[in-house]
Design a protein around this nucleic acid. Structure first.
Lengths: 183, 183
DNA sequence: AGTCCGCTGCGACAAAACGCCGCACCAACC
DNA sequence: GGTTGGTGCGGCGTTTTGTCGCAGCGGACT
């Protein structure tokens, strides 16, 4: 599959959605955006065709996974990938069993998204299976939790079970928001 | 699905396989064991029926995922779950897309296995989605990497990117290999 | 035999990180 | 007004880590 022509973006965060949409547009995608499940469902009925969909799993009260079934019912060949703040393996399995094509954790750039759409995840036996370093693991997890709490350091620290002061210090240590690349 | 009657266990480690087999037997499972892909394939042809399969993903050179397709071809209703040392989300997606019912990371007790077999992972919207504490995350990752290196502390420490001395100390702190429960 | 190599366990000490206090500031809300 | 909650930062005592070193042990090679 080349870059899709028609794409549905279901994303909570309006800013992120705009950015992503613009970036996708640069790749030639006609991106339709919805911020919640209802909006997405309505959008579904209006669209004449759909090649791909990018669903945020965490939408306040809603769960992006619930869009997969109706979406695939209307567009059986649509490739669906699910995005989430902190992805657990259980959540990845759930998404995939519901028909998702792939499952990504934020922060995911447009290149990540496009690659996830094009590649068949079941194809590669050459899965990384490389042990991520402890520091990387921690850092990514921190980023995910922080993202899940909209950047609220105090809440994230509580969720992580560490002191707020410690989180602050750790965040300042790595000012490089350089996107950690895949291994 | 109640506890399966006929079960296929594909597991590298002979000791672990014996243990698991015995434990499954106590639950009334007729467990057939294979240590590699070829053995499992041969076993497949001999078995008259199969309710469930537990596949270790990491089998030396082989990859347990490659058994899923032939297995499901012969027993389409068989429930397959995949076990792995350290599971990545990518690996979980790959397994699920190939038809696995669920995906677990070691160490997984028999109760975990049976629960994973019975439950439909796609059913639960009530996925944990609870942020695991940093300590838990680290500890589990350490355990996985350690397991992947057959308990070799020096190698594991290198893989984790921490000092061997530190790993030693951490391991001694938590001597309880008590099963960490799911959140 | 003997030597090399790698893993293990542990003691010791400096350096770094952490937990925990405090404070000042700001925003929102009653 | 007051109260509540988040943020950023300084300091200080405690804990953890990094990095040495050393003795022991098993295997493997000549």
């Amino acid at each position: 599959m080349a870059t899709p022509e028609s794409l549905l973006l279901l994303e909570d965060d309006e800013l992120l959605a705009r950015q992503t949409r613009r970036a996708l547009a640069r790749h030639g995608c006609d991106t339709h955006w919805a911020a919640d499940l209802d909006g997405a469902r309505r959008l579904l009925h209006r669209l004449p065709a759909l090649d791909a969909a990018v669903l945020d799993q965490n939408l306040g009260a809603d769960n992006g996974l619930d869009l997969i079934a109706p979406l695939l019912q209307r567009f059986p060949d649509c490739r669906v990938i699910v995005l989430t703040g902190y992805g657990s393996i259980a959540a990845a399995v759930a998404a995939t069993r519901r028909g998702a094509h792939n499952y990504l954790t934020k922060p995911a750039g447009v290149s990540d998204i496009l690659e996830a759409l094009e590649r068949d995840p079941a194809d590669l036996d050459s899965l990384p299976e490389a042990p991520p370093s402890l520091q990387r693991l921690e850092w990514e997890h921190i980023q995910r939790v922080l993202d899940a709490h909209q950047g609220n350091i105090s809440q994230a620290a509580r969720a992580l079970g560490i002191h707020r002061r410690t989180l602050q210090r750790r965040l300042k240590k790595r000012p490089s928001p350089a996107h950690f690349q895949r291994d």
